[in-house]
Design a protein around this nucleic acid. Sequence first.
RNA 1: CGGGGAGUAGCGCAGCCUGGUAGCGCACCUGGUUUGGGACCAGGGGGUCGAAGGUUCGAAUCCUUUCUCCCCGACCA
Length: 431
Amino acid sequence: MKYSEFFIPTLKEVPSDAEIISHKLMIKAGMIKQSSAGIYSWLPLGLKVLKNIESIIREEQNNVGANEMLMPTIQSADLWIKSGRYDDYGKEMLRINDRSGREMLYGPTNEELITDIFQTYVTSYKELPKNLYHIQWKFRDELRPRFGVMRGREFLMKDNYSFDLNEDAAKISYNKMFKAYIKTFLRMGLTPISLRADTGPIGGNLSHEFQILANTGESTLYYDQELESLDPESLDPDKLQSYYAAVDDQHDPKKCPIAKEDLKISKGIEVGHIFYFGTKYSEKLNAYVQDHNGKQVNVHMGSYGIGVSRLVGALIEANHDDKGIKWPKSVAPFKLSIVNLMSDDLNCNTKSLEYYSYFMKENIDTLYDDRNCSIGKKLSDNDLIGTPIQIIIGKRDLAAGVIEIKDRILDKTEKIQIDDVKKVALKKLKS
RNA sequence: CGGGGAGUAGCGCAGCCUGGUAGCGCACCUGGUUUGGGACCAGGGGGUCGAAGGUUCGAAUCCUUUCUCCCCGACCA
């Protein structure tokens, strides 16, 4: 993509609305525009990141046999009345009447709908286990939306629902998902910490929340330091779940089972939550199958959420400096910037275009900064929008036979002999 | 929902106390000069001051009502 053809309205000054760093940077980098409290438009650059995050999540979900589908944002109140949640959900649920006065709602979650879909089609234990998910916008009319997309009223969420014959089978499904979650966050360059979460009144139920480490996070985490260096190839959910990890109000230094030197304290942001809740919804919404003996049994369900739009903010909280965003390569909107410092110089143009077409052919999502503006603006814009690898082409360097390559994440630049530029850049991009 | 704060040009702000018909920086447009870290000079365009009502000869400014947004708290992906 040529910068001159792309819509990235970067700002020098940020609207006074924004308070936390990720929100400021998202506005500054032209990723989002607020529409009303807790509701945002996603501009092209922001959308690219959102899509990159989505596709990592999608790949890891599909890898463990989850089925992607898409349910509507607007739901009829009927199923919610059946499940009893139409009253329970309170003011957080956005209620709407259609033209004939029927009660509708903008879905805050999808247990009711999915259970209804399941019970329509599945009648035998032979079809289990099943795991269905979708990535869809939700709406929760929060008491107080804040922190930009980290706590919006409208937000994009990946939610799955697992269906199993009994509790043991459901726990296998649960652990599969657990593992997929850890892998997903690791691929985004994040450090996930899983914590056993409170599940409320129904005993025997299981729930974990997933936080990622970020200095500016909302919660304070106490955890075994081994959780910081997980090997995705040898992930064992049971072992992982046995490590110590707690948020500050659950952490009691006297009862902490691990040695002080192994205990780490850090700030975290919650980006995912998984639950096993047994037959809670399958009973109310008549989701049952026939077992081996021909007996009707309610299916055991779990639900699994990842805050996709929240992750965009969380990733920035975890990866930035005073110049802007430092995207991990896996989610970066552009992997490579070619910064042409002198857009009316023939040599600079020729070289820039050569690299641009080369890296596009190599399937590298490349931003070619061909704008006719000052050097300072180009360099600072590319730093702000956080392209991890930048090739900086200037008249002076070209005359000296070199080109500069910047690693935005390490914040290091080096001068490379012109003949080596493609090779070096490719190597950095793949590392 | 309780407590605090803010709405004046696209963005950041001043003006309000003490009423006299709106200003600065950035951005934008034109011309020129520049070019290795958000350029410089000259010229220029853009605002019914969140909305409604009231007081007054006259309201951004005073009074009333209302809407919106932000921050702190309780709740959450």
